[in-house]
Amino acid sequence: MDYYDIVMDSCSIDEKLSQRLGYKKIFSMGKDIKLANLNDPKVRGASAGIIMGEDKNKLLTFARGDVKAVIVTDFRIDKKLMAHMAENDIVLCIPVSAITFNYGLSRSRAIYMLNTLFTYARKSDIEVSFITQASSEMYLASEMQLIELAMLVGADEKYARHSISEVNKGLME
């Protein structure tokens, strides 16, 4: 099984490191796939890429366009948005950097929120992609670690492996 990860474009990774970490390739948001950060007021449109943001109405408006995946940055469930994602086969991206980047109580809270979001998404038949979304080398995780983090959020091992192989690859096609 080949594994893939997606990181921020600020994180530069050589091929040797990505192979050591157990990935066939580590993709970069902004370079390999378009990223529209809706928290930025300047963003007006998004196409065939990933959208991320907090405002659910804005996310839903953009998700009606040509979008492959959504990152909900506050990890809160919005039923309308989730229903639209399920209908249109839009993937929910879960960045595990929310767990590795936080500390103490905020980390515990992030795990709880991600667990709720993941469970709801899977019940709604939405495919979930686990990515590190690392902004630097310090926030990278190997394939083994990414699977364990996905399992911490509530995925079983089979789904965690499917997520970081097929789902992540599918985002790049």
Partner: peptide
């Protein structure tokens, strides 16, 4: 991500 005060990170290979 930190050991004492120094930045750190570990990858399990």
């Amino acid at each position: 991500k930190k050991l004492d005060v120094k930045e750190a990170a570990f990858y399990t290979l």
